[in-house]
């Protein structure tokens, strides 16, 4: 047979069959769209939780108070010691004068704190140190504490511990949900495809009887599955794209302090994965589903 007539037949058959089984095709597209939509939303949710956690992590600070009698030069020189510690991210020097004025701000203009303290500034010079992740905070704090220049350190130990637990929880639960959704989606999609193929098992068996080769039978199903998978994935992708965009805008407006992933490159990556995944599952699923009926 000529290749061109084969290709023409295959494409025509795939489209015709979608036209003939409109209901079935629509149901499959919808199933794939819903499955991928749930999967995509879960991915975004997990992504945002992780982003939230990492933003919170980056806000946790260690307050390092220097010895009260340490002179300014030594206090400033101490910066090098902190910077050498692994896991360190950034630091900010707070002089005793800065500390005083921060305190003054807190009490308001009506009280002159310095006066009430009889002109003595009780604050030491200090550093605010940030770690790369909450996991390294405890280690960094312990290391800094060993220097003799340091009077004391303070950080939200409990907060860090909780945050640490939460980070692990988000990672594990997120992973579990994604895997669960992936499996559920796969199951749903392959079941639908199996149903579409089952509806056409007579056609397949007649094709076998008249002597069609297996590839000849398989290929229209392959194309059809691919098309259905693609359409389902694009539907899911569009809903996620517009849905996420407006959700983000709403969140930014109404809860501005809540960190969200507004970087659309992440979103595009997820959409690409959904579309490629949906198309592949559709095509491969169809071929696998047909295989059962080819053994005549």
């Amino acid at each position: 047979m000529s290749l061109s007539s084969y290709i023409r037949y295959t494409f025509r058959d795939a489209f015709r069959s979608i036209g003939r089984h409109k209901g079935m095709a629509f149901a499959s597209i919808l199933t794939i769209a819903i499955s991928l939509f749930i999967l995509g939303s879960t991915l975004l949710l997990v992504l945002n939780s992780q982003y939230l956690v990492s933003t919170m992590e980056s806000q946790v600070e260690i307050n390092v108070f220097m010895q009260l009698d340490l002179d300014r030069q030594d206090a400033l020189a101490f910066q090098k010691n902190i910077e050498k510690i692994p896991g360190f991210q950034s630091l900010e020097f707070v002089s005793k004068e800065d500390a005083m004025s921060i305190m003054q701000d807190r009490f308001g203009k009506d009280t002159d704190i310095l006066k009430s303290l009889a002109g003595v500034n009780p604050f030491p010079d200090s550093y605010r140190v940030k770690a790369q992740s909450s996991e390294s905070i405890a280690a960094i704090a312990a290391e800094i504490e060993q220097f003799s220049e340091v009077e004391s350190i303070r950080y939200g130990k409990e907060l860090v511990d909780k945050l640490l637990d939460f980070t692990v929880w988000v990672k594990n639960v997120g992973m579990a949900i994604i895997i669960g959704m992936l499996l559920a989606g796969l199951f749903l999609i392959t079941t639908t495809i199996r149903l579409t193929v089952f509806a056409r098992k007579n056609e397949i068996s007649i094709m076998k009887y008249v002597g069609a080769t297996n590839w000849f039978i398989r290929f229209p199903f392959f194309l059809e599955g691919m098309l259905i998978g693609f359409l389902g994935a694009v539907t899911a992708g569009l809903i996620i794209y517009f849905g996420y965009g407006s959700t983000i805008q709403y969140v930014i407006k109404s809860v501005p302090f809540l960190p969200v992933v507004a970087d659309f490159n992440e979103l595009y990556r997820i959409l690409a994965v959904l579309i490629i995944g949906g198309t592949t599952i559709g095509a491969v699923g169809s071929v696998i589903a047909v295989r059962k009926y080819l053994k005549v």
């Binding site: 000529s2 037949y9 008249v210 002597g211 069609a212 000849f216």
Partner: peptide, 28 residues
């Protein structure tokens, strides 16, 4: 091969049912 229960494809016309056997073996 012919069967007691005919085994025609219900959603295809007479012409298409017969043409199907030719198309399935790649007849132009």
């Amino acid at each position: 091969f012919i069967f007691q229960d005919f085994r025609l494809l219900q959603e295809r016309t007479v012409y298409e049912n017969v043409a199907f056997a030719l198309e399935a073996v790649g007849t132009p």
